[in-house]
C-alpha cells in the first residue's frame, strides 16, 4: 500500500478545522479514526492582545513536510494534514491544526502527538506577544518540556 501524501499549508488565512477533517476523509471509506489536534491562541488571563507568528518561508513548509513524511513511515496513516498560521493571530483563533486519519485509533492518536511535539521544536516559527495594555511584548521563550516531549520519540 502506498503511503499517503501529507498536505502541508502555512499562511495567514483562518484555519477551517471542519473543512480539513472532511478533506482528510473525502472519497474514502477505509478510515476508522480521525484525530484532529487544534492549537489555539490564549489571552493569558486577558493580558495578551495578539500573537505575531514569524516563520521562515520555504523552510517552514519543508520542515513540516519532513516531520510528516517521518510520521507516515512510522504509522499506517490514511490521511495527514497540517495547517499552521503565520502573521497576527488573535486570542481564540487557531494557530495550528494536525489531522491524522487511520483505520484504527492508536495510529491516529500517536501520529498527531508526534507531529505536534516535532512542530514545536523543529518547525521554524517564532511567536511575539502583543500585550493588551499596549506595552512592548516579548518573544515567547522555548520550553525545555517541549524538548523533552520530542525526545520521547527517539528510537
Amino acid at each position: 500500500m502506498a503511503a499517503v501524501t501529507p498536505s502541508i499549508r502555512v499562511g495567514p488565512e483562518p484555519v477551517d478545522v471542519a473543512g480539513e477533517q472532511a478533506a482528510a476523509c473525502a472519497g474514502r471509506s477505509d478510515i476508522g479514526a480521525v484525530v484532529a489536534f487544534t492549537g489555539l491562541c490564549r489571552d493569558e488571563g486577558g493580558q495578551l492582545a495578539a500573537l505575531e507568528l514569524e516563520h521562515y518561508p520555504g523552510m517552514a513548509e519543508a520542515e513540516i513536510g519532513r516531520i510528516a513524511d517521518e510520521a507516515v513511515t512510522r504509522w499506517p496513516l490514511l490521511g495527514l494534514r497540517v495547517v499552521h498560521r503565520s502573521g497576527r493571530v488573535l486570542p481564540g483563533e487557531t494557530i495550528v491544526l494536525v489531522v491524522a486519519a487511520s483505520a484504527h485509533r492508536a495510529a491516529a492518536f500517536e501520529a498527531a502527538a508526534f507531529l505536534m511535539d516535532f512542530l514545536k521544536t523543529r518547525a521554524p516559527f517564532w511567536k511575539k506577544e502583543h500585550r493588551a495594555d499596549g506595552s512592548a511584548g516579548g518573544w515567547v521563550a522555548a520550553k525545555d518540556e517541549d524538548d523533552a516531549a520530542t525526545e520521547r520519540w527517539a528510537r
Partner: peptide, 26 residues
C-alpha cells in the same frame, strides 16, 4: 539551505544560511 544544521556542519557550496533562536511554533 533550509535544513537544520549542527555547528560542525560544513558550509562549502551553501547558498543561504539562517540564524535564529530556538523555535516556538505549534
Amino acid at each position: 539551505d533550509r535544513v537544520h544544521a549542527q555547528p560542525d556542519a560544513p558550509l562549502a557550496g551553501a547558498r543561504e544560511v539562517a540564524l535564529f533562536p530556538p523555535m516556538t511554533g505549534g
